[in-house]
Amino acid sequence: MAVLLLLQSRGRVTAADVAAELEISVATARRDLEALSTAGIPVYPQPGRNGGWQLIGGARTDLTGLSAPEAQALFLLVGPAALIAPDAKAALRKLVRALPQTFREHAEAAAEAVVIDPARWGEHTKERPELVRRLQDAVVRRLKVRLVYAGRGRERSERLVDPLGLVDKDDIWYLIAWTPKGQRTFRVERVVSAELTDEAFERPADFDLSAAWNEIVEQMEVRRSGLTATVLMDERHLWVMQDRLGRHCEVDGMEGDRVRIKVTAPTPLMIAQHLAGWGGSIEVIDPPSVQAELARLGRELAARYSGIV
């Protein structure tokens, strides 16, 4: 992309120009230019003293389809990765230098607009686990992986999988893979070992990691939302409840000066645990099972701390 952007902004470049701008060898630059031509991009070499590589007819059209807003979006997304991945920082620097001058200022500003620091307070750095890096390598290289996996409450099992992609969900890594029993999701922290094999696999052409993960999340949320409780609370505190429960808290209307909400969880106890800290500032209308769990929790707390004034 950087080489193509250089061609678009300058019209004609030599392999030496590309090497100097992108901090690569002349041989690598020449191979990249030849690769563009082989890929069908209208780029051709012109021999001679003032020769070089240029777009056919001197075209300066945006062959990447990258507009100024799209360039900003690209750098806004990739820029935060520079803190974690030095390679990303080097790639961004090369792309910025290859952008047309009119794009550069806003692209650089977008790249520096956001910093994502994955380390918790007290930690100097946050590196991806070695197992995640190994699985990522398998995903990129399209190599089957022999997993030893310890599922929740199950004995260890060994299986040969096609790794399709990795997802980081709230600092917990998941592997989405194809198995003889179909697509499965593995929690990486439960992977005992992962051995890359020499056997390649073909990734399904229609597989979309983001879409696959969204479907998994929806299925999980359905399983986690087996019970719904109707709750009344002051509207001014609604944002706190929504912040804590996310999609498990939905507004269902108003009753007088209080808002009616629906709170979901797999069991009455889990709903009660979410709501117990609100004390008398909320009222559970139904179901009786959640009311009973709240009453039980109240009796337990009263009995434990009854002697404290």
Rank of each mutant, 00 (worst) to 15 (best):
Q8W: 01
S9L: 00
R12F: 02
R12D: 01
A16D: 12
E23P: 01
I24D: 00
I24K: 02
I24C: 14
S25W: 04
A27I: 09
T28W: 05
A35K: 10
A35D: 08
L36R: 06
T38F: 09
G40V: 03
G40Q: 03
I41G: 00
I41D: 00
V43P: 02
Q46Y: 04
P47Q: 12
G48L: 05
R49W: 03
N50K: 08
N50H: 09
N50Y: 09
L55M: 11
L55I: 11
D62R: 13
T64P: 00
T64K: 00
G65H: 06
L66I: 03
L66A: 03
S67N: 01
L74D: 02
L74S: 03
V78Q: 09
G79Q: 11
G79H: 12
P80W: 09
I84S: 13
P86L: 13
A88H: 13
A91F: 07
R93E: 14
L95C: 07
E108S: 10
I116D: 10
D117S: 15
D117P: 04
D117W: 13
P118M: 15
P118G: 14
R120S: 14
W121F: 14
H124Q: 15
H124S: 15
E127V: 15
E130T: 14
L131M: 13
R134W: 03
R134H: 10
R134L: 14
Q136S: 09
Q136Y: 08
V139G: 05
V140T: 12
V140D: 10
L143W: 03
R146W: 03
V148P: 00
V148L: 04
R152V: 07
R152W: 03
E155L: 06
R156H: 05
R156L: 07
L160D: 01
V161W: 00
D168A: 14
D168S: 14
K169D: 15
A177T: 01
A177R: 01
W178N: 07
T185Y: 01
R187W: 04
V188Y: 03
V192L: 10
A194I: 07
E195L: 04
E195C: 00
T197Y: 00
P204R: 08
D208F: 02
D208L: 05
S210R: 11
A212C: 10
W213D: 08
W213K: 07
V217H: 02
V222Y: 02
R223C: 05
R224V: 06
T228D: 12
T228K: 13
L232P: 04
L232T: 05
D234N: 14
R236G: 03
R236H: 10
H237G: 14
L238D: 10
V240H: 15
M241N: 04
R244T: 13
R244G: 13
G246E: 11
E250D: 05
E250N: 05
V259K: 06
R260P: 03
R260C: 06
I261V: 15
I261D: 00
V263F: 09
T267F: 06
P268W: 04
M270Y: 06
A272F: 08
G277T: 14
G277I: 15
G277Q: 14
G280L: 12
I282C: 06
I282R: 09
I285C: 06
P288M: 07
P288Q: 12
S289K: 13
V290M: 09
A292R: 15
A295E: 09
L301C: 07
A303I: 04
R304C: 04
I308F: 11
I308C: 06
